[in-house]
Nucleic acid binder design. Sequence first.
DNA 1: TGTATTTACGTTAGTGCTTACATAATTGTT
DNA 2: AACAATTATGTAAGCACTAACGTAAATACA
Lengths: 327, 327
Amino acid sequence: MYLPSLAQLALGSRLKSLSDHFYAAVDEVYRSCGAGVESRWFPVLRFLWEHGETTVSDVALAIGQTHSAVSQLADKLVDAGLVQRKKDAQDGRRSLLVLTEKGQSALSALGPIWVAVRRGIMRSLGEEGLTTLLAALAATEQALEERPVVDAMLAEHAALTSAELEIIPYAPALKDHFYRLNAQWLERHFRIEDIDRELLGDPERYVLAPGGAIFFARLAGEVIGTCALLQESPGVYELSKMGVDETFRGMGAGRSLLAAAIAEFHRREGRELFLESNSRLKTALRMYEQVGFVLQPSVRAGSHYERADVYMVYQPGKRRPARAARG
Amino acid sequence: MYLPSLAQLALGSRLKSLSDHFYAAVDEVYRSCGAGVESRWFPVLRFLWEHGETTVSDVALAIGQTHSAVSQLADKLVDAGLVQRKKDAQDGRRSLLVLTEKGQSALSALGPIWVAVRRGIMRSLGEEGLTTLLAALAATEQALEERPVVDAMLAEHAALTSAELEIIPYAPALKDHFYRLNAQWLERHFRIEDIDRELLGDPERYVLAPGGAIFFARLAGEVIGTCALLQESPGVYELSKMGVDETFRGMGAGRSLLAAAIAEFHRREGRELFLESNSRLKTALRMYEQVGFVLQPSVRAGSHYERADVYMVYQPGKRRPARAARG
DNA sequence: TGTATTTACGTTAGTGCTTACATAATTGTT
DNA sequence: AACAATTATGTAAGCACTAACGTAAATACA
């Protein structure tokens, strides 16, 4: 399943899917018990059952739908003989919905089914799973009511677009971010090799001590990307461990990190700068080319990584040979 | 809001409502940022962005929708110029969906908006609220996949309908149920008065010791209802503290409890049996009438309860006088 | 009292999805 | 190789809901 990996971004879709799932499940139970009702009728029927005759808009307000929806639902319930429309004597505009005798008895007969539904859900989700789900739903409903989410989003957007992207050098407090940001793409596309784990876990020893450098990109206070420059041998540098948080891509962080690393390479008057990567990482490769890396015909001899199938060398000025050079 | 009070029973409706809420919120943000996309497109677009060209059914499988839905969505995306349909060279049946250049750049530009959406949700729900919601959703999705909820419901239903309702006398282990079952309806319709709290909290002292009795209804191992017979003065009994778990109503538990209490009244050769209630409790009043209680013209003198506005006396044989007795 | 505004409801058109069906291409079987 | 079965997709019809509109009744206000 792909959606859960999107977490907050696909909340709407995930909730919808769960909703459909429950509706369908309950409908199937109703059907196979011969209940003669549909799951979507439940809120209205139950409300009328508990509260007696009620106007269309009061029902709509209570169950959180529009009056049209309730009105149309009422049509069906009337057709099914479960509900009756009565004119309000005091107020001629209002139309009171009441359960008919048939509706009353149908709902009473539904009792055991509701219990079964409830216990079935509990059995399937587990008692704890169900309570946490219900608690989370209630909290979300309340939060959305109290703190309009649109305003919050727009405020965040304004803050983000006005914030400036900073590139900062390594500091011990940022060590965990170095691991996190790299683990993200490694886990998604490949797997974390032993050599990764070692290097990412102790960057001071494996990157800084041998004469390398690490940069971080920070936006509005959040560390969103990183990039390392390793000194392989005197004057020979490797660009590596470049990672930008998935949710912050496309904002230029990668490009800025790359620029910072290359600037550092020049500042140290390095002789050679190369990188190893994988052909699957299309957007990264495109970016490398754009800043001056040139694809080499074969993998670098003695690469440390299983996943390396691309070898590029920094040769600003040179362009990658065009495909149809002869023509 | 009424729905949350229904808890598990209206899960579908509540999830749907939340889903709509999120869709609408994100759409509004997209619109006011001039993003030119709709929130419902997100799963497809994002998937294509991450995975490149993909067949219709693979997309559908990944985002958990039908191929038709994806196909129709693709029509719109093509209209919007974000996606292109390509024929698969190997397999003529397949239709590959790919982002166009415009689609690529639109999605890249969307980065900051997604971040804002994500942070906005977090700000609105709170960091903890969001994590618990996501965790609960993930757990639910997984549970539904592993343990089909329909089967669980049907199994519970079978167990319930074959189970027999038992009426059992008071036992110390059941004390807490006496409080719980009565608190439920008291809190919903009235409020718990001091006299309630005292009596419900120590039934042995206030009900049994003065010569009363308490019964419980049990179904499939669950205690679902209770009812008390209080001795007010020698030979004079009060029927009181009758409560059936909301989710187990309409299964005859109330009627059985009532019958047990009346039988006990006869067994003790009581002289008078009365009850106090409230006119709002329609179903209960109807039941009392059916078993032989007769509505009295005025409230009983010196009632202990604020909520009492109905006074009934057990007079089997007598019926309530008909409304139009004269005609 | 007469007129504008508000309220309650129903109706219509449209949206996003589903199910059911149709069609074309591929694969399996003999 | 010929035919049936399967697979991938698109299309049509239907459902649940919404938004927008129209109408009737009630209310506010001068």
